[in-house]
Structure formats: C-alpha cells, structure tokens
Nucleic acid binder design. Structure first.
Length: 743
DNA sequence: GGCACCAATTCCTTT
DNA sequence: AATTGGTGCC
C-alpha cells in the first residue's frame, strides 16, 4: 500500500493508530481516501483483524465502495469488517439479540407509509381527529422525540406538567405499544432499540465493545443524538474512534442531526487529535470560490476555507428563464451542446434541485430530446403500490404479527373483505393475544362475517401459511413466484389494459430481477434479510453505474457525490431557500449549507439557474431570485440569459468583454438557435402553450399582419420590431398587439 | 362491499 | 396539475 499519494495532513491522519481522531474534511478534500487508507493501514501495517473494524457510512452504496476500495489497496480481506449505515448495522445487531428486548428476530421494519397506517389505527382507537392533528404532525413529533432519545416514558416525564401534551403522550405510548405488538420497528427504533439492548444487557454491550477495536464514522456532522449515543457506547472501552465530517455540509438538522456532535468532539473525547483537510481536489477554482462566497454568509460558522491548485476553469454560467420550462430548455440545450462539442457522456451531467417536484420540467425536455436520464429519489421503486403490496405479503409470511401489512393486502386483490369485516376481527382480537392473521382459524367464534368474506379470509390464511412452510427451504425468488402465481396478479393487471397497469406489470417483473440479484450477492439469501435490505435502501443505492443518462436528484440526495458538470436549478426565493426557512435564521443557514453542498458537487463546470415565473399548485406565479444568488461572487458569474431576462438582483452584469467573449457569444447563439427552431431536430412541437417572451429571431403570428419574425426587442422588453411576411417591418407593442409566439 | 365521482390537499429535504 | 381521500349510490 502506497501512502505517498496522500498529502501531508492526509498521511498524518492516516498514520495515527489509537485514540479519538476527528478529521475535518472540506468538500472534495479526499476524506474517502483518508478513511480507506486508514483502515487499510490498520490491517496491513498494524495487524488489526478486519473483524475488529467497523465503519459507518451514510449510504449502503458508500459502504460497498469503501469495501471495494480497501480491497483494491490490500486485497480481499474486507468480508469480516462491518461496513454499513447506522440503520443496517443496528439491524445486524438486533437480529442477533432481539429476544433480549422482547422482540423476535423476525421483526419487520416499518417505513414512512407503514408508520402512517399504524398511526391511523392509533387515531381511531383514541378518537383523534386527523383534521385537527394531521398524521404527518404526529409522525414528525414522534420521530423528533426518538431522535432525541425520548421514549414515551421519558417524554411523559419531561412534559407531564404540560396539559397540551397529554394527547400526544397517550398517542406516543399507544403507537409504541402497537409497534411491539406487530413485531415491528420504525427507522428510528432501529437505533433506539439497539441502545436499549446495550443498556439492559451488559454482556451484549461488552461483546461488541470488545469486538470492535476500531470504529469509523463518515459524515459525522449529520449524526443525531441517538446515533451519537450509540457511538459513545460502542467506543467507550477502546476509545479508538475515527470520525470524518464537515460542519459546512450538515444538511439534516430537520432529521435530528445535531451539528454539536462534530463541533464538540474535542470536549466529548479529551485528547482527541484533529486534522483539517483544506485542499480540494475536486473542483476548478472558480467553482470553489463561488462556494466560499456563499458559505461565508453563515454567521455561526468556524472560519475555514478550501483552496485548490487547479486552474480557474470556466466562469459559472448564470441563466434566468421566463418559466420552469424555459429553464429546463436551457439546461438540456447546454447538455446537448456539451456532448456535441466535447467528450462528455450523459452521466457526466447532474441537475440538482431543492424539491423532487422540480424534476418534472427537466424530464419533459429530456424526453422531448430523446435523451436518457435517471431520476434519483422521488417516488421510490419500493414505494410503488404493486411493490408495496407484494412486500406486505412477504412481510406477513415472515412475521404473522404484522397487522399493518395484513390490512394493506387482505383485500388486495379483492376478496370481499372491507372495513366492517376487519372491525369484527379486531373486536375479537382485542380479547385475545392474537394478530389479525392468527385470528382467522378462530373465525367460528366471530359473529356476523358473511360467507363470501369467510371464504376469502381462509384462502388468504392458507396462502400465507403455505408460503411460510417453505420459508426455510425455498429461495426468495421461488416464494415470490409462487406468490405471483397464487395471487394471479399479472393476469389481473393485464385485464385492466391500461398504461399504468402495464407499468405495474413491468415493475413486478423488475422486482423479480432485484430478488435474483440479492440471491446472487448474499451469502445466505433469506427473506428476512431481503426485506430489511429493501426497507433500508437509500436513493443513492439505486444509482446504477453502467447505465448512461443525465442524473436528476435533490440536493440532499447529491450529498457525497461529484459530477463533471452540475446544474443548480430553481434558485428562487421561497423555493431555495425553502419558504419554511424564511423566518428562521438557523434554517436559513442550513439552506445555505445545502447550496454549498450543491455547488461543491461540480468538478469542471457549474451553472446556476432560476425562472421568473413558475407553475405551482396549478397556478402560474411570478418568482423572485434567491438571496443566495446575490451572495455569489458576481465577478465569476457569466450571464447566459436572454437579453430580456436580465436579473433583477444586483445583476451579475458581465463586463462588456465577457459578454461578447467567444464563449458567451457561442452559447448565446446556440440558445437562440434552439428557441427559434433553426436546429431542425430540437424540440419539435413542445410549445403548445407558447411562452410570452419575445426575442430577436422569434416567430410570431399577428392577428392582422400574419406571420412575422422579430428583428429586435426594445429596451423595455415590450416594443418589438417585427418583419412581417405580408407588409414588411413594423414596430408594435407586445403587451397590446394581438400577437403570439409561434415555435 | 365496490365503484364512481367530487373535494381537498399538496410541493421540503430521508433512513 | 395531480393524487388521495371521502361520500354516496348501487
């Protein structure tokens, strides 16, 4: 292994073996390299067994990459190492000893949707009105409490004197009780229950404390209180804790991440060694300068600044469009130009936005141009109805206590079992210790269930039990196949003869592929582990390397990734920063960090864009530029907007020579070229709803004069000089004359 | 119980 | 704009 490729600070950080270590790693400063070399160094030069090493990463994808990279440094010794996310590592620990805290190792993991369904049941039992207290509010409150490690009991103690909390406390108790009844844990429980396990069972804790001699945590700035505590427990004995993070990239406060965890590392671990990585290897200087110009506006920030010895690179492209469609057209046109003129492939480009909903206009344009793309996040594959249904069946096969899954699929496909029937079973259930599924054999004791419903219930029971019998002998894919066959689900969707149904069928087959891949990769492919893995899959885990396509994702999802060309879009007030952040300075700082993260994803080129109007909630509304645009160093921005679209914030008015520089002119031409439709195969129809902007080269139709070509636009952007086919050149007012654009 | 139609709500970010 | 949930009728 060659440590000479590291810079001085990196090497020093890598070579320390024992004790607590904090690596403050700015964006693109090679923290993954430090982590992998550190671990490789432990194993190769200090005879540490891989089985004594734990590394916690932010995504499973990062975990796999880390294993691969360590493997390529010192060979395939990594299989004994524990590398994974907080959630997956907790599952692994819990599977072993769940019985110590009143769970079986067959527990299932409830995602956000399941959580909601369970809360709904709690609401019903407690007569809570979901109009008065939206499910989301309770969901959020429970999660926040758990992130702060407040169990119902602790929360109760802390808030007992507050009568307004009475209702919530009751709900929280019931929710937690129901989770246990269902043998289920939500995402936050995975950490809390692991901590509980450690707290109550000294022997278990000692086992792991002794086992893991060296613990590593990546993205330490985004750990929450529970995760922090978990680490404290695990590292308490050996104190060999190596954490890497960057306070400037903390973007998960809303999920409970506590920036203090990294800021106060020295106090938590006296004698900790601290290394600061400030040389950036990722981005051109202009990109880095832009990032710095934004992040310095955060008042509560420890001063540090990244530097690079790379050249400046191109300026940062700035574009303001008429609306989101205009914005998308610009971005896609740029990508086309890049690919035509340079050696870029589609997957070199990333479009980063604040909210998932923004992907749409870009998808439309990409589709129009027949360009491959991949949207990361949004409606996840595993959240699609047909997949969730099949997952619910499989969860029930593993865990018959899972009432949430039972209710989800008992009438899917239709078995003539509705709310009334379920209520009757629940009434029976409350007198017993049985789950809904387990109640079915006792149907004779339940009054008033119709023959049709009874038949449906029994068939359902037999289906699940039939599959359960095969659990230990059959492959997951065999169970899946049998499930599909027994449910006759494909034929049912085929009968619908709709595009949506066809897509569902595709997804069902796709899911089969996912299962088969799991079986190939896993050492002991069982259904339990498969279900856990699908529940804990992150968006980034779904990025496939081999497929070429433009990447679209939220800024959050882009964390830890890098791309040659980045488009940071939708830089508008109330969108980015989010409207929720406007009145809260702390949240505004977090939005700014998010902006910083976005900028620093770019290696070679960066473009920042926004629109003057945007469709939202079906309404077309004017938008204002984001304050972050104003903060950006204007001298490194290059305005690529239509002349009519000069920015209204202190304009990044390019110096004359810039404006007419070869680059600016070239890009301008391509932009106009596209809009006026002179490029033949670009945007064929597209503009049925023509945008109201006019510019030189635009084709217009006048009610009286007929077709014409805009020659120039007045300084006010409204007086147009138009050459009409019928009557020559005329000056008319775009706001008053009966004209419209024809694309 | 199932289905069709209407109304309300949503678009902040996620394991 | 689009999805989701609710209501009322069959």
């Amino acid at each position: 292994m060659d440590l000479s490729i590291l810079n001085d600070v990196q090497r020093k950080a890598v070579e320390v073996v024992d004790g607590p270590i904090l690596v403050v790693a700015g964006a693109g400063s090679g923290k993954t390299r430090v982590l992998t070399h550190r671990i490789a160094n432990l194993i190769e030069n200090h005879d540490i067994f891989p089985s004594g090493i734990m590394a916690i990463t932010f995504t499973n994808k990062a975990a796999n990459e880390m294993k691969t990279r360590i493997g390529s440094l010192i060979g395939p010794v990594t299989s004994q190492m524990w590398v994974g996310t907080f959630h997956s590592i907790c599952v692994r620990i819990l599977r072993r000893d769940a019985d110590r805290i009143g769970y079986t190792s067959d527990f299932v993991i409830y995602d956000t949707q399941d959580q909601k369904a369970l809360l709904k049941a709690c609401y019903k039992e407690l007569n809570i009105d979901d109009k008065q207290t939206p499910l989301k509010t309770s969901q959020f409150k429970i999660s926040a409490a758990k992130n702060d490690m407040l169990t119902p009991e602790l929360y109760d103690m802390q808030n007992a004197s507050d009568y307004r909390e009475k209702g919530f406390i009751k709900l929280y108790y019931l929710y937690q009780a129901k989770l246990k009844q269902n043998q289920a844990m939500d995402f936050d429980d995975l950490m809390l229950k692991t901590i509980e396990l450690f707290k109550q069972n000294q022997d278990v804790l000692s086992y792991y404390q002794n086992k893991f001699k060296y613990i590593h945590v990546d993205e330490y700035q985004d750990t929450n209180r529970a995760q922090y505590t978990l680490i404290q427990y695990l590292a308490a004995k050996n104190r060999n804790l190596f954490v890497v993070g960057d306070a400037d990239q903390s973007i998960y406060k809303w999920r409970g991440a506590d920036i203090r965890n990294i800021r106060e590392f020295e106090e938590d671990f006296p004698g900790a060694q601290i290394f600061k990585l400030e040389q950036n290897y990722r981005s051109k200087k202009n990109i880095l300068d832009l990032a710095n110009s934004v992040i310095v506006n955060n008042p509560n920030r420890r001063d540090k600044s990244l530097w690079t010895d790379q050249d400046s690179g191109e300026k940062i492209g700035y574009f303001r469009g008429y609306d989101e469609k205009d914005e998308a057209k610009f971005v896609i046109e740029r990508i086309r130009t890049f690919i035509r003129e340079k050696e870029y492939k589609l997957s070199d480009f990333a479009i980063l936005y604040r909210t998932n909903a923004q992907s749409r206009s870009f998808e439309d344009q990409l589709m129009l141009n027949a360009m491959a793309y991949k949207v990361i996040g949004g409606l996840k594959f595993y959240e699609r109805k047909e997949i969730k249904d099949l997952l619910a069946y499989m969860k029930l096969v593993v865990n018959p206590n899972d009432d949430v899954s039972f209710i989800r699929v008992i009438n899917e496909p239709k078995r003539s079992i509705g709310g009334k029937t379920i209520e009757k079973i629940q009434a029976f259930q409350s007198k017993t210790e049985l789950s809904l599924l387990e109640s079915i054999p006792h149907l004779s004791q339940i009054e008033g269930i119709g023959a049709k419903a009874q038949k449906g219930l029994v068939e359902f029971y037999e289906l699940i039990m039939g599959l359960k019998a095969k659990l230990d002998t059959a492959f997951v894919s065999q169970i899946y196949d049998e499930l599909l066959e027994k449910l006759n689900i494909i034929s049912l969707y085929e009968l619908e003869r709709s595009i949506e149904a066809d897509a569902r069928i595709d997804n069902i087959y796709e899911f089969k592929t996912v299962i088969e891949e799991f079986e190939k990769r896993s050492e002991s492919p069982n259904l339990r582990d498969f279900l856990a893995e699908t529940s804990l899959r992150s968006d980034q885990d779904n990025i496939e390397e081999q497929e070429d396509g433009v990447l679209l994702m939220t800024l959050h999802a882009s964390k830890g990734l890098e791309f040659p060309v980045v488009f940071l879009v939708g830089l508008e007030d109330n969108l980015f920063p989010s409207f929720r952040a406007m009145d809260d300075p702390e949240e505004l700082e977090e939005e700014r960090r998010l902006c910083y993260v976005g900028i620093t994803r770019a290696e070679e080129r960066l473009f920042v864009t926004h629109a003057r109007n945007r469709n939202q909630y079906g309404r077309f509304e004017p938008r204002h530029p984001s304050p972050f645009l104003r903060e950006m160093d204007q001298s490194i921005l290059e305005n690529l907007s239509d002349q009519n679209e000069m920015p209204s914030f202190d304009p990044p008015k390019p110096k004359k020579e810039n404006y007419f520089s070869k680059n600016a002119l070239k890009s301008k031409q391509s932009f106009f070229g596209k809009a006026s439709g002179t490029q033949g195969n670009t945007t064929p129809v597209a503009s049925a709803s023509q945008s109201a902007t006019y510019f030189a080269g635009a084709k217009v139709n006048h009610k009286v004069f007929g077709m014409g070509l805009v020659i120039s636009v007045g300084a006010d952007g409204e007086m147009l000089t138009i050459a009409f086919d019928s009557c020559g050149i005329k000056k008319i007012h775009s706001g008053l004359a009966p004209i419209r654009r024809v694309d």
